[in-house]
Nucleic acid binder design. Structure first.
Lengths: 224, 224
DNA sequence: GAGCAGGCTAAACAGGCGTTCAATGCGAAG
DNA sequence: CTTCGCATTGAACGCCTGTTTAGCCTGCTC
């Protein structure tokens, strides 16, 4: 086997990164209940080595979270002026290489925890930026509660995607996942556009009569 | 104890129903990874008895699914003319007694599986009825793809609720859960009303220019 | 060449899991 | 009273989990 030096083989980051990548893929595919030995087999190593490198399974997951978050931050600048949250993720996963990351993120949101909250805050922040930009450009209506609207849209988009993948467990390879993701986008695009263009209710009385006791809280979405 | 003639019959007060109820509560609270011994302790029995009555853990879960589904069907007639999916669930959980059922349903959707698909189909069916009724009453706009819109709205409402509870794990008693549910409804009500009344985009060009190659598929939402 | 450090492995360990089994207790029937 | 049937128990089993431990084996350093 190759050792820790710097051999000429394709070894980006060494076995540690290899384990981490395998863990991201396996966690994304099977959820965080996946066993260390399974991940070890995927990475071509043993379970003991994982603990040797990451201290524990939780340490491995922290490393995966940090790695995915770093990738997310790196790929953030590729984000375009898109209004829909699901489409944003879909675009990110358009690059087939990023499918495991999106899969891992969905698993993370599904399982809750710190990365889930961070991811949600990320998406809410992005959505806020997009909405503000669209509002400034005159293509998006103003809101009487912008922050609440932003959080609402982000929750809806992320949750809808999550339900889709929970109900369509095409737990195959990444190509299947990407195809399902595209199918999802194709399915929701028209209803989303229709809803965003013409709303759902015929008249505005329900909105105009609303007391709006929602104080449009600050962007902290964690505490109840 | 009573020795029932029919072993599988619903026997209010019997140990079988007691185990099932405890399992619904525990599964809803901790997820389906909860151990048999934990459920047994909750029900005041032993793990062996659970297997004796339900055959296996999967059998117990099937019994829970069937029970929850029966309760859902029973409580369906209480549904009112509400447009929002989340509010529907919230109204159902308004009765404190129904909080464990809603919790179990959310866990079920989170975990996927048959009950999740059935629940989703239920909600889609209900949403379709509400939308059609509202459309007939002239308060809801017509859609160029009604079935797609229905499924879209159901996915959004259900997913948003799911993300809320994943990110706000107030895993305390049922009172906490109910309070969090009310908080959720309070939070999303205004943005939902605003979106449903005035949409999101300023002009309709994005909708009018849409080719609409979505063939508005039949109400089967399970297969990809 | 000798010695050391560390990546890496295989085996063992402790604990939890679902499940099985023999035995107990109690109520009903003969 | 005896006997049977069934709900119920507590202990045991086998499996899988994350983790620990001891040792090998390789490459670097002197």
């Amino acid at each position: 086997m190759r050792t820790g030096g710097a051999p000429g083989a394709v070894d980006p980051g060494g076995a540690s990164a290899q384990i981490r990548d395998a863990a991201v893929v396996r966690f994304g595919r099977d959820g965080f209940g996946a066993g260390l030995r399974t991940i070890a087999d995927d990475a071509g190593v043993t379970a003991g080595l994982i603990v040797h490198h990451f201290g524990s399974k939780e340490g491995l997951r922290r490393a995966c979270d940090a790695h995915v978050l770093a990738l997310l931050r790196t790929a953030k600048e590729e984000a375009l002026t898109d209004t829909d949250t699901g489409s944003l993720l879909a675009r990110t996963a358009g690059i087939e290489e990023f499918a495991p990351i999106v899969r891992y993120l969905l698993r993370s949101v599904q399982a809750g925890g710190e990365l889930a909250a961070t991811t949600a805050e990320h998406m809410i922040g992005d959505a806020a930026a997009y909405l503000a930009a669209g509002e400034a450009a005159g293509v998006i209506r103003s809101s009487r509660a912008p922050a609440a609207r932003t959080r609402f849209l982000a929750y809806q988009g992320l949750g809808s995607l999550l339900v889709w993948f929970t109900l369509h467990p095409d737990n195959g390879d990444d190509a299947r996942f990407t195809a399902s993701l595209r199918e999802y986008v194709r399915t929701i695009t028209f209803p989303a556009v229709e809803l965003f263009c013409q709303g759902l209710f015929v008249d505005r009385s329900m909105l105009d009569d609303h007391p709006l006791h929602v104080p449009d809280p600050p962007s902290d979405g964690a505490s109840a």
